[in-house]
Computed example of a mutant assay.
Amino acid sequence: MSTFKFEAGAVFPSITKSDLGGNSRDLSKPLDGKDWQMLVVYRGRHCPLCSRFLNELNTYKSRLADLNIDLVAVSADSKEQLESHITKLEVSFPLFYGLSVEEMKSLGVYISHPRSEKETDHPFAEPGLFVINESGTLQVVDISNNPFVRPDLEKLVSGLEWIRNHDYPIRGTYSYS
Protein backbone atom coordinates (compact mmCIF):
# COMPACT_ATOMS: atom_id res chain seq x y z
CA MET A 1 0.00 0.00 0.00
CA SER A 2 1.31 3.43 -0.88
CA THR A 3 -0.03 6.86 -0.07
CA PHE A 4 0.67 10.29 -1.47
CA LYS A 5 2.63 12.66 0.76
CA PHE A 6 3.01 16.36 0.03
CA GLU A 7 6.51 17.68 -0.23
CA ALA A 8 7.01 20.81 1.82
CA GLY A 9 6.72 23.81 -0.46
CA ALA A 10 4.65 21.93 -3.05
CA VAL A 11 1.88 23.75 -4.87
CA PHE A 12 -1.37 23.06 -3.08
CA PRO A 13 -4.17 21.60 -5.23
CA SER A 14 -7.29 23.52 -6.11
CA ILE A 15 -10.38 21.94 -4.52
CA THR A 16 -13.71 23.69 -4.95
CA LYS A 17 -16.51 22.92 -2.51
CA SER A 18 -19.81 24.45 -1.42
CA ASP A 19 -20.97 25.74 1.93
CA LEU A 20 -24.51 25.55 3.30
CA GLY A 21 -25.36 28.88 1.69
CA GLY A 22 -24.65 27.41 -1.75
CA ASN A 23 -21.46 29.42 -2.17
CA SER A 24 -18.67 27.58 -4.01
CA ARG A 25 -15.07 28.35 -3.31
CA ASP A 26 -11.55 27.13 -3.99
CA LEU A 27 -10.48 26.02 -0.51
CA SER A 28 -6.80 26.70 -1.21
CA LYS A 29 -7.39 30.42 -1.84
CA PRO A 30 -7.79 32.92 0.99
CA LEU A 31 -10.54 35.53 0.91
CA ASP A 32 -11.27 38.83 2.67
CA GLY A 33 -7.89 40.35 1.77
CA LYS A 34 -5.91 37.60 3.53
CA ASP A 35 -2.78 36.25 1.87
CA TRP A 36 -2.48 32.84 3.62
CA GLN A 37 -5.03 30.08 4.00
CA MET A 38 -5.55 27.47 6.72
CA LEU A 39 -7.56 24.48 5.55
CA VAL A 40 -8.71 22.03 8.22
CA VAL A 41 -9.92 18.62 7.08
CA TYR A 42 -12.10 16.96 9.71
CA ARG A 43 -13.73 13.55 9.96
CA GLY A 44 -17.36 14.71 10.06
CA ARG A 45 -20.37 15.10 12.32
CA HIS A 46 -19.94 11.59 13.76
CA CYS A 47 -16.71 12.64 15.48
CA PRO A 48 -17.09 14.42 18.84
CA LEU A 49 -13.34 15.11 18.89
CA CYS A 50 -13.70 16.98 15.58
CA SER A 51 -16.52 19.08 17.02
CA ARG A 52 -14.38 19.92 20.05
CA PHE A 53 -11.37 20.75 17.83
CA LEU A 54 -13.40 23.00 15.51
CA ASN A 55 -14.94 24.84 18.47
CA GLU A 56 -11.51 25.36 20.03
CA LEU A 57 -10.09 26.47 16.67
CA ASN A 58 -12.78 29.14 16.51
CA THR A 59 -11.25 30.79 19.59
CA TYR A 60 -8.05 31.34 17.53
CA LYS A 61 -9.82 32.87 14.53
CA SER A 62 -8.99 36.47 15.46
CA ARG A 63 -5.30 35.69 16.05
CA LEU A 64 -5.18 33.96 12.68
CA ALA A 65 -6.88 36.99 11.10
CA ASP A 66 -4.25 39.24 12.72
CA LEU A 67 -1.66 37.10 10.90
CA ASN A 68 -3.54 37.57 7.62
CA ILE A 69 -4.53 33.88 7.60
CA ASP A 70 -8.01 32.91 6.35
CA LEU A 71 -9.60 29.85 7.97
CA VAL A 72 -11.91 27.20 6.46
CA ALA A 73 -12.79 23.58 7.22
CA VAL A 74 -14.12 20.71 5.10
CA SER A 75 -15.28 17.12 5.51
CA ALA A 76 -16.67 14.34 3.34
CA ASP A 77 -20.07 14.75 4.97
CA SER A 78 -23.11 15.43 2.81
CA LYS A 79 -24.95 18.74 2.88
CA GLU A 80 -27.59 17.17 5.16
CA GLN A 81 -24.94 15.85 7.55
CA LEU A 82 -23.28 19.29 7.74
CA GLU A 83 -26.68 20.92 8.36
CA SER A 84 -27.17 18.56 11.30
CA HIS A 85 -23.62 19.02 12.59
CA ILE A 86 -23.50 22.81 12.44
CA THR A 87 -26.23 23.02 15.09
CA LYS A 88 -23.75 21.44 17.54
CA LEU A 89 -20.86 23.75 16.64
CA GLU A 90 -19.89 27.20 17.81
CA VAL A 91 -17.82 28.32 14.82
CA SER A 92 -17.80 31.53 12.82
CA PHE A 93 -15.55 30.37 9.99
CA PRO A 94 -16.81 28.71 6.79
CA LEU A 95 -17.51 24.97 6.75
CA PHE A 96 -17.69 23.04 3.49
CA TYR A 97 -18.95 19.58 2.62
CA GLY A 98 -18.66 16.82 0.03
CA LEU A 99 -14.94 16.03 -0.02
CA SER A 100 -14.57 13.05 -2.37
CA VAL A 101 -12.24 10.09 -1.93
CA GLU A 102 -10.18 11.31 -4.89
CA GLU A 103 -9.87 14.76 -3.31
CA MET A 104 -8.86 13.18 0.01
CA LYS A 105 -6.19 11.21 -1.84
CA SER A 106 -4.95 14.40 -3.55
CA LEU A 107 -4.48 15.95 -0.08
CA GLY A 108 -2.57 12.94 1.22
CA VAL A 109 -4.85 12.48 4.22
CA TYR A 110 -5.60 9.08 5.67
CA ILE A 111 -9.03 7.72 4.73
CA SER A 112 -11.17 5.42 6.86
CA HIS A 113 -14.25 3.32 6.31
CA PRO A 114 -17.04 3.71 8.85
CA ARG A 115 -17.17 1.02 11.53
CA SER A 116 -20.97 0.88 11.22
CA GLU A 117 -23.88 2.82 9.76
CA LYS A 118 -24.24 4.49 13.16
CA GLU A 119 -20.90 6.21 12.56
CA THR A 120 -21.53 7.43 8.99
CA ASP A 121 -22.43 6.16 5.55
CA HIS A 122 -19.27 6.94 3.54
CA PRO A 123 -15.47 6.80 3.64
CA PHE A 124 -14.12 9.84 5.47
CA ALA A 125 -10.86 11.71 5.93
CA GLU A 126 -8.88 11.47 9.12
CA PRO A 127 -7.67 14.85 10.46
CA GLY A 128 -5.50 17.08 8.33
CA LEU A 129 -4.42 20.69 8.65
CA PHE A 130 -2.75 22.64 5.86
CA VAL A 131 -1.39 26.18 5.86
CA ILE A 132 -0.92 27.55 2.36
CA ASN A 133 1.22 30.65 1.89
CA GLU A 134 0.83 33.62 -0.46
CA SER A 135 2.55 31.69 -3.26
CA GLY A 136 -0.04 28.90 -3.08
CA THR A 137 2.51 26.49 -1.65
CA LEU A 138 2.33 24.31 1.42
CA GLN A 139 3.96 26.10 4.36
CA VAL A 140 2.76 23.81 7.19
CA VAL A 141 1.13 20.37 7.15
CA ASP A 142 -0.19 18.16 9.93
CA ILE A 143 -1.96 14.88 9.19
CA SER A 144 -3.03 12.02 11.44
CA ASN A 145 -4.41 8.56 10.92
CA ASN A 146 -6.81 8.83 13.87
CA PRO A 147 -8.87 11.44 15.71
CA PHE A 148 -6.72 11.45 18.85
CA VAL A 149 -3.62 13.10 17.41
CA ARG A 150 -4.01 16.75 16.40
CA PRO A 151 -1.85 19.83 16.74
CA ASP A 152 -1.95 21.79 19.96
CA LEU A 153 -3.66 24.94 18.71
CA GLU A 154 -1.84 27.35 21.02
CA LYS A 155 1.53 26.00 19.86
CA LEU A 156 0.40 25.99 16.23
CA VAL A 157 -0.85 29.58 16.25
CA SER A 158 2.18 30.77 18.25
CA GLY A 159 4.37 29.02 15.69
CA LEU A 160 2.51 30.69 12.83
CA GLU A 161 3.04 34.04 14.57
CA TRP A 162 6.77 33.29 14.65
CA ILE A 163 6.79 32.20 11.00
CA ARG A 164 4.92 35.29 9.82
CA ASN A 165 6.83 37.77 11.99
CA HIS A 166 10.32 36.40 11.28
CA ASP A 167 10.05 35.36 7.63
CA TYR A 168 10.76 31.79 8.73
CA PRO A 169 11.29 29.46 5.75
CA ILE A 170 9.35 26.37 4.81
CA ARG A 171 10.86 23.44 6.75
CA GLY A 172 11.21 19.81 5.67
CA THR A 173 12.37 20.48 2.13
CA TYR A 174 15.25 17.98 2.07
CA SER A 175 14.90 15.78 -1.00
CA TYR A 176 15.60 12.06 -0.86
CA SER A 177 16.24 11.75 -4.58
Rank of each mutant, 00 (worst) to 15 (best):
M1I: 15
M1Y: 06
S2D: 13
S2F: 13
T3Y: 11
T3V: 11
K5F: 09
K5T: 13
E7V: 13
E7C: 15
A8P: 13
A10G: 05
V11C: 06
V11G: 02
V11F: 02
S14D: 06
I15R: 09
I15H: 11
T16A: 03
K17P: 12
S18N: 09
L20N: 00
L20Q: 04
L20G: 01
G22E: 12
G22W: 00
D26S: 09
K29D: 08
K29Q: 15
K29M: 13
P30D: 09
L31D: 12
D32R: 12
D32H: 04
Q37N: 10
Q37F: 03
M38G: 00
M38C: 06
V40C: 10
V40P: 09
V41R: 13
R45V: 12
C47N: 10
P48G: 08
R52L: 15
L54H: 02
E56A: 15
E56D: 12
L57A: 14
L57T: 12
L57S: 07
N58K: 11
T59R: 15
Y60S: 06
K61P: 06
R63Y: 01
R63P: 08
A65Y: 11
A65V: 02
D66F: 05
L67H: 12
D70G: 04
A73D: 02
V74P: 03
S75K: 00
D77P: 02
K79T: 00
Q81F: 04
Q81K: 12
Q81L: 09
L82R: 07
L82P: 10
S84T: 14
S84V: 13
S84P: 14
I86Y: 05
T87K: 13
E90V: 11
V91R: 05
F93C: 00
F93E: 08
P94S: 12
L95E: 04
F96W: 04
F96C: 06
E103G: 02
K105M: 10
S106R: 07
L107K: 08
S112E: 09
S112T: 05
H113N: 14
P114D: 06
S116C: 05
E119Q: 01
E119C: 03
E119N: 07
E119V: 10
T120F: 00
D121M: 06
H122C: 05
P123E: 10
F124E: 00
P127D: 14
L129S: 10
F130S: 05
F130Y: 07
V131T: 04
V131N: 03
V131L: 04
I132D: 07
N133C: 06
S135A: 15
S135Q: 14
G136S: 07
G136P: 15
T137A: 12
L138A: 10
V141K: 11
I143M: 09
I143C: 12
N145H: 15
N146V: 03
N146G: 09
N146A: 03
P147C: 10
V149R: 02
R150L: 09
R150M: 02
D152E: 10
D152R: 01
L153V: 10
L153W: 01
K155E: 12
L156K: 00
V157S: 01
S158C: 13
S158N: 14
L160E: 08
L160P: 00
W162M: 11
I163L: 05
R164C: 14
N165C: 01
N165H: 11
H166A: 03
D167S: 14
Y168C: 12
I170V: 13
T173R: 06
Y174M: 14
S175A: 02
Y176Q: 10
S177P: 01
